[in-house]
C-alpha cells in the first residue's frame, strides 16, 4: 500500500511537470516546427528581446499587477480589520459579498464588468476600456482574497492584545499602528503576494476588461496560441516559469523567516 501510494505520487508529479518540461525544452530547440530535437539554441530568447512589443506587454502586466495589488491590499486589509473589530447590521451581507468573487466563475464576473464599463461609458463618457478598467476589475477580485487571508490571520490573534494596548493608553489608531498591524503583517504580505500573482496570472477578467493598447502578457500569449505559436512564446513562457518559481521560493523563505 505505501509503495503503491509512492508510485502514485511520482506519477502525478510527473503529470504536473510534463507540460512545463516540454515548454522549457522546446524553448532551447533549434527546430522552428514540431517537437523533434534538432539542437540547442538561445536564438528564441534573443529574438524575444528584440521583439519590442513584448516589453510593452510585460510592462502593462506589471503596471496592472502593482497598481491593483496596492489598492486591493489596503482596501482588503481595512475590510478584514473592520469586520474583525466591529459588529454591525450589514456585517453578514458584506461577508457574503466577499465570498462572491472567490466562488463565482470568473467569466460571469468578466462579462458583468464589461457590461458595467460599457454602461458607465454610455452615460458619462468615462472609463474607456484600458489599463485602468483592467486594474478596476482586478482589484474587485483581489480585495476578496486579501480580506480572507488577513481575516484568517486576525482570527488567530488574541483579542486581549488589542485590549491590552488600549488598557496601556493606546487609542484606536495607535493600537492598530503599534500592535495589530505588526502582528498581522505576515498575513497582509501573504495576501498581497497572492493578489499579485492572481493579477499576473489572470486571463479571463483581463480578456473582458482590456481595450486596444492595453494588451498584457496573458492576452498576448492567448492571441499567439490562437494564431499559431512561434518559438519565442516558448522562451517567454520559460522566463515566466523561472520568474514565478524564484518569486514563490523567495516569498516562502521570507514568510517563514518572520
Amino acid at each position: 500500500m505505501p509503495r503503491l501510494l509512492k508510485l502514485h505520487t511520482y506519477l502525478v508529479l510527473a503529470f504536473l511537470y510534463l507540460p512545463i518540461a516540454v515548454i522549457v525544452a522546446l524553448s532551447f530547440n533549434q527546430s522552428r516546427f514540431g517537437v523533434r530535437w534538432t539542437g540547442f539554441t538561445w536564438q528564441w530568447y534573443l529574438r524575444l528581446f528584440h521583439h519590442h512589443r513584448v516589453a510593452v506587454y510585460a510592462e502593462n502586466t506589471l503596471i496592472v499587477a502593482v497598481a491593483s495589488t496596492l489598492i486591493a491590499t489596503v482596501l482588503g486589509t481595512l475590510l478584514a480589520l473592520g469586520l474583525y473589530r466591529y459588529s454591525f447590521r450589514l456585517k453578514g451581507a458584506i461577508r457574503f459579498l466577499i465570498y462572491v468573487p472567490v466562488v463565482i466563475p470568473d467569466i460571469v464576473m468578466g462579462v458583468a464588468l464589461l457590461l458595467f464599463f460599457a454602461w458607465v461609458r454610455v452615460h458619462t463618457g468615462w472609463l474607456r476600456l484600458s489599463l485602468t478598467t483592467i486594474v478596476l476589475g482586478h482589484v474587485t477580485f483581489q480585495i476578496a482574497y486579501v480580506a480572507l487571508v488577513v481575516r484568517s490571520r486576525l482570527a488567530g490573534l488574541d483579542p486581549a492584545l488589542e485590549e491590552a494596548a488600549q488598557d496601556l493608553g493606546a487609542g484606536s489608531y495607535a493600537t492598530f499602528r503599534h500592535v495589530t498591524l505588526p502582528l498581522i503583517l505576515p498575513g497582509v504580505l501573504a495576501g498581497a503576494l497572492l493578489a499579485f500573482t492572481l493579477s499576473l496570472d489572470d486571463f479571463v477578467i483581463t480578456f473582458f476588461t482590456a481595450g486596444p493598447g492595453s494588451t498584457t502578457l496573458p492576452l498576448y500569449i492567448f492571441g499567439s496560441v490562437k494564431r499559431g505559436v512561434t518559438p519565442e512564446i516558448h522562451a517567454l513562457s520559460s522566463i515566466l516559469i523561472a520568474a514565478t518559481t524564484v518569486g514563490l521560493v523567495l516569498g516562502r523563505a521570507l514568510l517563514r523567516r518572520r
Binding site: L13, P19, T244
Partner: peptide, 23 residues
Amino acid sequence: LLLLVVLPFWTNFLIRIYAWIVI
C-alpha cells in the same frame, strides 16, 4: 512535496494550457 504540487499552479495558466497543445 507541497511546494512541488503548488508550483505548477503558480505558473501562468495559459502557458500550461498551451503546453498541452504542444503535447
